[in-house]
């Protein structure tokens, strides 16, 4: 297969970037999208050019490192697929493929296709945990959680933190990311104890990072490689309301 690649190149965070066009021949349909980029990079290096920098690690769709905006879709045209799981057989021979980094004020570009997602980290630092010390855990089965709830909690917890939700949102909002974690803990007894403070703090941090606001277009759900549901955003909204409505003053 042959492709024309149009890729965003940017030397570093401060440099001005631009698109470069690379024709690429003899791509095997069995290649994954990232293997195709490896293939391109090999050719670039052989020609004495700098290879395209992109983030990746596990290459099996679970670490959340890779994230490219491909032809107008985060992680490319296939649903429930990360960039590394995408294969060239999903593209048409001769196609022009435009590859961009995630775009958001909260995700500044570091180099080429790599963005800085530390804003996601800070949202988690604000409250994405249960306050429990090593050694204080009760027996695991002392808190039964029904299978249906447990499955739902798992669905929320499946987030890989790739940032596709932000990339897909026309408002570059991070609601799905924050909501998944908030919902995961709000649904189980371990997390309920501090659910109100958690939602408050995490939303505050999310706002401070400069993400956009949610306008319920549900693009995030559509493009989430793990198919995380926007129901969790509703749940977060509910939690947030009850947090505001029932806020207690410290004595």
């Amino acid at each position: 297969m042959n492709f024309t690649l149009k890729i965003w190149r940017q030397k570093n965070a401060n440099a001005k970037g631009s698109f470069q066009t690379y024709p690429l021949k003899d791509v095997s349909p069995e290649m994954s999208f990232l293997e195709m980029l490896d293939y391109l990079n090999n050719q670039l290096i052989a020609r004495g050019n700098e290879p395209v920098t992109f983030e990746h690690d596990c290459r099996e769709g679970i670490c959340g490192s890779c994230g490219l905006y491909i032809n107008g879709r985060p992680h490319g045209p296939q649903r429930s697929t990360t960039t590394c799981e995408l294969h060239m057989r999903d593209f048409k021979d001769g196609e022009t493929i435009v590859i961009e980094p995630w775009r958001s004020k909260a995700f500044p570009v570091i180099k080429d296709l790599i963005v800085d997602r530390s804003s996601f980290e800070r949202i988690m630092h604000a409250g994405g945990f249960v306050n429990v010390n090593v050694g204080c855990a009760p027996e695991s089965n002392s808190n039964p959680i029904g299978k249906l709830i447990a499955d739902k909690v798992f669905d929320a917890a499946a987030c890989i933190g790739c940032g596709a939700c932000v990339a897909a949102c026309k408002n570059s909002s991070a609601m799905l990311y924050a909501a998944a974690k908030i919902a995961q803990y709000a649904m189980i007894p371990q997390g309920k104890v501090e659910a109100k403070e958690r939602v408050d703090k995490m939303v505050k941090q999310m706002d401070a990072e400069g993400f956009g606001f949610c306008s319920n277009t549900y693009a995030c759900e559509f493009d989430c490689p793990k198919g995380i549901s926007t129901d969790f955003i509703a749940l977060m909204n509910r939690e947030f309301f009850s947090s505001k409505a029932c806020k207690q003053k410290h004595a």
Partner: peptide, 18 residues
């Protein structure tokens, strides 16, 4: 026990046990 306390969503059966 510690993972469960931290909210790790291990699979459960219908009665709610791990």
């Amino acid at each position: 026990d510690h993972f469960t306390a931290m909210g790790v969503p291990f699979a459960r059966d219908y009665g709610g046990s791990l």
